[in-house]
């Protein structure tokens, strides 16, 4: 059974019909890429899954449970964690305080250890523990946002454009990290503009177009798909 099953969801911003019946599945342990051009509805999809928005129609099932009407903060304790678009670090909290906020739902004693493993994943962050997050570089903020999302020990990690605005060297690093996280058993739903990189690490992928799923296939096939090559990979 799929870990996450999105079925025919319709999500609106007021009168704006942003998602027009999106359906897809994510199995446990997979990396799923969600690609699409600007305004296709990728962020809206993630916001709907994470509970920040409720779909008007359709259902979202997580671990066998219907969650589309559940409050976002409760979903975190069920194991869904999100790295929001544009990083969304708390600029006026320090790096360490940001990480502690990531572990907000946890009251156990292992937080200290997880802090250590976050720092071993991103040594840069350890050097800047006491620095205000707003003063980090863009790349460091992205690292922090990912590390923070991991602090809640998620089973499903939603990543919204983790490579946005990063230098090519850093982009490679971010995707490597995503792979490493996946190898530790975390299921990943990855939204990306950088379709090329996303499809390289993903198992399967979905192409979103104007609020609808246009194509769905394995990552390898998508890379060969003509439309995908033309529109998203820039290959003529």
């Amino acid at each position: 059974m799929a870990l996450l099953e999105v079925k025919d969801i319709h999500t609106y911003y007021g009168n704006i019909h942003a998602l027009k019946g999106v359906s897809f599945e994510v199995d446990s342990g997979e990396i799923i890429a969600l690609i699409g051009s600007n305004g296709a509805g990728k962020t809206t999809t993630l916001r709907t899954i994470s509970g920040l928005m409720a779909p008007r129609e359709g259902s979202v099932t997580y671990d066998g449970e219907e969650i589309s009407r559940m409050r976002a903060d409760l979903l975190v304790s069920k194991g869904i964690s999100m790295v929001p678009e544009g990083r969304g670090v708390f600029a006026k909290l320090t790096v360490e305080e940001n990480l502690d906020m990531g572990a907000y739902i946890r009251r156990d004693g292992a937080i200290k250890d997880d802090l250590k493993s976050a720092y071993s994943l991103f040594p840069r962050l350890e050097e800047r523990r006491k620095q205000f997050a707003g003063t980090l570089s863009g790349g460091e903020q992205q690292m922090l946002a990912i590390a923070r999302a991991l602090m809640s020990k998620p089973r499903l990690l939603l990543l919204d454009e983790p490579s946005m605005g990063l230098a090519p060297v850093l982009v490679d690093g971010v995707f490597e990290t995503v792979q490493r996280i996946a190898s530790e058993g975390v299921t990943i739903l990855l939204v990306e503009q950088n379709a090329h990189m996303a499809l390289q690490i993903a198992d399967r992928g979905y192409v979103l177009q104007s609020g609808e799923v246009a194509i769905s296939d394995t990552a390898a096939n998508l890379q060969q798909n003509e439309t995908v090559q033309k529109t998203y990979l820039g290959i003529d």
Binding site: D73, V76, S77, P84, D100, M101, Y104, I105, S152
Partner: peptide, 24 residues
């Protein structure tokens, strides 16, 4: 304290705070 920081998180970005599991 965490209580204080949870407020600061809301002050910074309510949506992201919710996504951390904070009942805003």
């Amino acid at each position: 304290s965490r209580t204080g920081r949870q407020w600061m998180a809301i002050r910074e970005d309510e949506d992201v705070a919710t996504a951390m599991g904070i009942d805003t």
